[in-house]
Design a protein around this nucleic acid. Sequence first.
DNA 1: CTAAACGCTCACATCGACGTCAAGGGCAAG
DNA 2: CTTGCCCTTGACGTCGATGTGAGCGTTTAG
Lengths: 122, 122
Amino acid sequence: MRIGELSARTGASRRSLRYYEQQGLLVSTRSPSGQRCYDDDHVQRVALVQSFLAAGMSSRTIAQMVPCMTEPNMDRAREALTAMNQERNRLSSTIDSLAAARAALDHLIDVNRNFLANAADD
Amino acid sequence: MRIGELSARTGASRRSLRYYEQQGLLVSTRSPSGQRCYDDDHVQRVALVQSFLAAGMSSRTIAQMVPCMTEPNMDRAREALTAMNQERNRLSSTIDSLAAARAALDHLIDVNRNFLANAADD
DNA sequence: CTAAACGCTCACATCGACGTCAAGGGCAAG
DNA sequence: CTTGCCCTTGACGTCGATGTGAGCGTTTAG
């Protein structure tokens, strides 16, 4: 599969896919003429990258973690494990912040509803 | 209180506070010489803004929602309610994405741990 | 064979929340 | 009055993921 199809199947733009590769998040083989070739496994890999990016991880962080899936190596695995645990903690506290913001928002919504209800009574 | 103290009490930089005001997220009275003056209520307001920004809301979005706390007005209140509900949904789905990413991360951590454990056995 | 559709690299543009620096004014203590 | 710290506005810089366009080669359908 070439880049266009991978793009269609993942929703990532061609530009993004080339960027992922440049950042070391994605590997491709090349056809004799230099075009990128992917197989079905790459679809999953891109989905994973997208998920992590959407979670606010930087491409550098992802690059630290994801390669160890393809090239397992003792030292990198240990580094990766550290990075992963850090990111796990960051994710968890981000989730907590978001939940707090949502609670604050719920409060505002409530205040607002009451205001509108009272205004209607007048 | 002037901007320096508000900054110290909220953790937001002076630059950020001026930016919030420029974006309509914060209102200040001015001393005769043009310096911004705040009272204790502003501390809470800034905390709210910070919480929303940390949740990934844009300042434009916050500006739509927050003013209705100070200047309640029927039309704005209705607009704000719409914006708030949209943001609530966005927040919820973001939280879900983060949870999914965390689950994926947990899986990677597991794979990694097993790899290290097996390698240790050799 | 040719045109359309796709791919390549390089490089500049964008957006949003700030950092940072410049050039200047306000105000209290020595 | 001056030293020092706080304040003002304005403008340019930053970072990261991606858009976009130029200029050029490749693959595919008619």
